[in-house]
Each structure stands twice: as structure tokens, then as C-alpha cells.
Design a protein around this nucleic acid. Sequence first.
DNA 1: GAGCACTGC
Length: 679
Amino acid sequence: MADFDLASSFIPALHKPASLLPIARHREALLYLIETYPVTIVVGQTGSGKTTQIPQYLEQAGWCADGKVIAVTQPRRVAATTVAMRVADEVGCKVGAEVGYSIRFEDVTSAATRIKFLTDGLLLREALVDPLLSRYSIIMVDEAHERSLSTDVLLGVLKKIRRKRPELRIIISSATLQAEDLLKFFMADADAQAKPAASDALTLDELIAQKGGRTGRMYPVDVLYLESPAEDYVEKAIETVFDIHTKEPDGDILVFLTGREEIDSAVQAISERAANLHPRAQQLMPLPLYAGLSTDQQMYVFEEAPENTRKVIFATNIAEASVTIDGIIYVVDTGYVKLRAYNPTTGIETLTATPVSKASAVQRAGRAGRTKPGKCYRLYTESSFQSLEEATVPEIQRSNLAPVILQLKALGIDNIVRFDFITSPPAELVIRALELLYSLGALDDYAKLTKPLGVRMAELAVEPMMAKTLLSAPSFGCLSEILTIAAMTSVGGNIWFQHEGEKKRMETARRKFAVEEGDHLTLLNVYQAFVTKGRKEAKFCHDHYVNFKAMTRAVSIRAQLKRYLERFGLNVEETLSSNANKQPLSVGGPDKAEQIRRCLTTGFFAHAAKMQPDGTFRNVAGGTVLHAHPSSLMFNRKAEWVIFHEVMETGEKIFIRDITKIQKGWLVEYAPEFYKIQR
DNA sequence: GAGCACTGC
């Protein structure tokens, strides 16, 4: 993955003799705690060495006897791979030998592996096969304070496993602000009632405080507030950047904004206004940083600025935890972040700019103190800061829970309401998810996983609606095509490349793949052209304005999904070769196209809409106005009934993406109960 | 004729 290159830029920050790391002084105490207590909570900042050192101490202390393995989970792929490389380097082995990592599509471990870094999502998958995670003597959950969906599910599952495996040791690592919740969660264990609750888990920070130690490796950061609120935080941020530039000593600036639009306009404003700086004065170099940029574009932020130039990086939340840039002395925090939330009543996701939490603001400020003492300019008042939420609402309380519940059911956890979540999801989210899973046929009348449909849906690494579509495909004779469509819709990120100022040509290129029936068949067309005419090469992508990274990922996902299906005993008859010599417009003839559209309806019937004379759509209930996203072929085409992959509300409008024409009658044909209930 | 923060299997 390209993200990988990005990560290599911040490895040097971790390179510090292991003996100098703050954690080294606590080695014996740590080993004692872990030996004595089933759960240990470690509080420490990035750079304390907890992630790299603790697994090595444990391995040396004999926790890998009898071939057992130490697992260390990370919320992100990049972290799992880079930390594994760092530790392998320290141990003096090759990655994949005693120290390895495992992430989706990449298993770099062997029979010799004793310390294994992996994403928390992947460890949950392992639990499907080995419910007690019995090959691990120790499981360390890193960055638990981030409270990602899979971290939360994993913590609940681990608490359950603990009761059946008293010898298992669990280590949770977290930032200070959230450590207490984690402590309470593991202390309030019914199983521990015989022991004094307080001894069931201990935090390291108390211990370190007693010894006068400091877990983090941070320099002090001066925090400054506005005296009165800013009207336009983007404009205020730009002004603040110029203030810093003209009044403060050398050092790069990091500005937190919410999205691409704001960032692009801020970068442009800085370029324009910087022209007024004295030609011999220090110059300003504005740089954007957000996930939608290509790897090459992202790499600029790590390069040293030219002489007599100060870098100012305008970034989304990607710079809060995922990407670390050295040399930042000044942070400008606008106090907002775009957060996703799921409305269980409408089933629509929203993406809106929201005030950050205190924990986020603290984390952002900390980005200024990695190299030397820094300053953080909060573009809000101190009293606004005081009224912020302590922590960001965990994902589990604001997500579509259908995938989570399907996964829990597959892990044998039937009573979702009584499952011990570290933070319980709202009942409405759980009910909505159960209803969807029931309507898809994954759950029966008793909310039990159906066999084989529900069980198989849980195993497929795609969301439930697409999983259902995939498993319906054999009966429509279009499994090969649906496999491709499932892979293409789950790549995440744009299939089409965004060239600066070449929109027209991109549109023309895109139209060459367009299929009358809609976006899904168009995606199928692009994929087929890529693997046949394009021979999976970058040149084809460049010529056709297609994103090579996304296409490569689609190839991997497709292969993985195909392996799952074959494991179920479903035969995937590849139809690709028969199309190889045809023009891209062919997707196997009109009959095949109809079978594909029917098949999609079996999974996406809940995502149906009807076009209005004005070109907008209404949902089936009729109350919600939906707009075709401009990236869809249906943006300016006529249709009657359609199904869509995704719906999201941004700003004033609700957009639907990946849209395909269907016939109204198919809805009732494939989801009779669902449409009975609706009326 | 307008635009999706971030992450994961």
C-alpha cells in the first residue's frame, strides 16, 4: 500500500536507543504486574516505547514458552507494519521470523513468530476460527483510547474470553484521559468478585508517578486562546498563520481544518497573500494534507522546506493520530472535525463538522511539542474549551451496527443487549441493525444466525447488504460479475482519478465505460477492461483517468472474496475471458445485465428510490429527497426506480452513490416481507 | 451540475 511509504517518513522519530526510553526504568515492575494481574492498563504517550518494548520484555521473561505467541493489536495497518519492522530490527531478526505482522492481504509471520503485530479487526477475524484465541499467551491492545469500532468489540470479546482462560494476560494501552473508563470496565467483572475489585487491574501511571517518572516523551506546549470567538475560522486560521510567521521564531506550522474544500482554499489564500511578503523576508510554503491526496502529494509535507522558507501544513484530522510530522513547533487548532454519524431512524449517515473533544484538542496541541517546546493557538475561547466534551463519542455509539452485530452473532454472542460493551450502543442503533439483518435473512425469528446464509455473510469481508448480494449471485448465474462489483464498491476512495483542471477529459474517459443501466455495471466494465486490455498495468489507468491504487486493491479484494466463496463450496465460473475481445460496453449481454440488476436488488432492496420529474429521488416511504451524487452516471440521466450502494448527508443535501436502475416489481419479488412492513 | 473526516476485514 502506498500509505506504507508515508509511514516510513516517521520511523526515524521512533529510533532512540531502547535503554533510553522512559519505559525501560519500569521493566521489572511491569513484568510483576502482568504476572500478577490478569489485566494491566498501561498509560503512555507515543514515544514512551510501550508498543515496542513491552512485547520484548514479555518474550524475554518466558511468555512465549510452549510455542505461545504475544499479540499486539493496532487500529491501523501502517502502525502494525512499521512497529513490527522496528521491533524486528531491535531483536535482530527479519520481519516474519521471531517478530512478524499480519494485516489484511499481508501475513508476514511464520512458525517461528513469537511477537505478532496485527490490526484489531484481523484479530477479531481470527476469533471466528479460534474463539478463545488460544494460541496467544498475551494480547496487548494498543491505542485503545481511540475507541475504534473494532477496538471496542475486541475489548468486549477479550473480557468474555478471560473468564474461560484465566491464564491469558491482557494489556490495554491508552492515553491518560480515557484510561479510567478502561480500568472500570475490566474491574467490574462479575468473575472477579472473589478478589478485591481494585486489585483486578492496575494502571502503570500511578506506579510511574510514584517513581517520579514521565511516560511521554513530550516537550511543553504553550496553549493560547482567543479572547472572543472567531466568526470565520478558516479566515482566522490564515490570519494566525501570518501572525506566527511575522512574529515568531523559526518552526513549521500545522493547521487543523475539517476537509478538502477548506484546505484547498486556505492553501490558495496563503499563496496569494504570501506574495505581499517582503522578497527578502522568510517565505511561506503552504501544503495540503488529507487522505484523498495521492501518496506523492502527501509526501511533500515530510520534505524539508527550502532555505529561508517556513512550511505551513493545512491538514484534516489525519494529522491528529495517523500521520506524525516532525519539526512542527506551532499548531493552529480551529476546534472542528468532520465526524460521521448514523441516524437509526432514517438509516442515513451524516458527515458534519463538529466541535472537537477536549481529548482531541489536547492531542492536537501535543503535535507541537515533539521536537522542542511549542505553541498551540486554539481559535476559540478558553470557556469554549471548558465546555467541550471530554472525549469523542465512540464509534460504536454512532455507527451502523449491522456489520458489528453480524460479527458478534458469528462469535457466538447471541444476546447483544447483554453483551458487555465498554460503552453500550444506543438501543435504536441495535434495533435498526437487527431489523436489517433479519430482512436480509441473516437472522431468524429468534434473532439467531441462519445457516448457512447468516454464517456465511458474517465470514465475508463486505457489509451485510453486499454479502447477501454475493451469496444470491449463484442462483442468478452472475457470481463472477457480482464478485467484481463487490470488490469495486468496497475499495473505498475514488475509482476515478482527479486530475487538476482536467475534469472535462476525465468525464470523456469515464463515459467510455458508461453502461446505460447504471454505476454498478459501469464499475464492472472498468474492472474487466483493467484486467484484460489494461493487463493490470498503471499505463492503462493513466490513459483512462482511473486510479491505479484503487484498481490494484480491487484485484486483491476480489481474490480474497473468491477464496471465501470457494471455501463455502461455491464454484466461481469466471466469465471474464468471454468478454476479453469485446468492446468495453459489453457486460455479457442484456440478459446477464438484467440478472446482475436483479441480484443487486436481493441485497440492496432497503436502498431503493424513485426518480421524480425534477431529477431528484425520493426514498420508498416518500419523505426524503435524495440527490444522485455528481460522480454517478445517474446524475443527469433518466430512470424510474433505482437501488443504490450508499447514502450520505453532507451539508444541505443527501447524496446517493453507485446507483443502478431496477424495476419496481423486483422489490416486492425479492423482499416481500420488507415491503409489506413498510406499508 | 456538485463534491467524503478517518480507519478496518
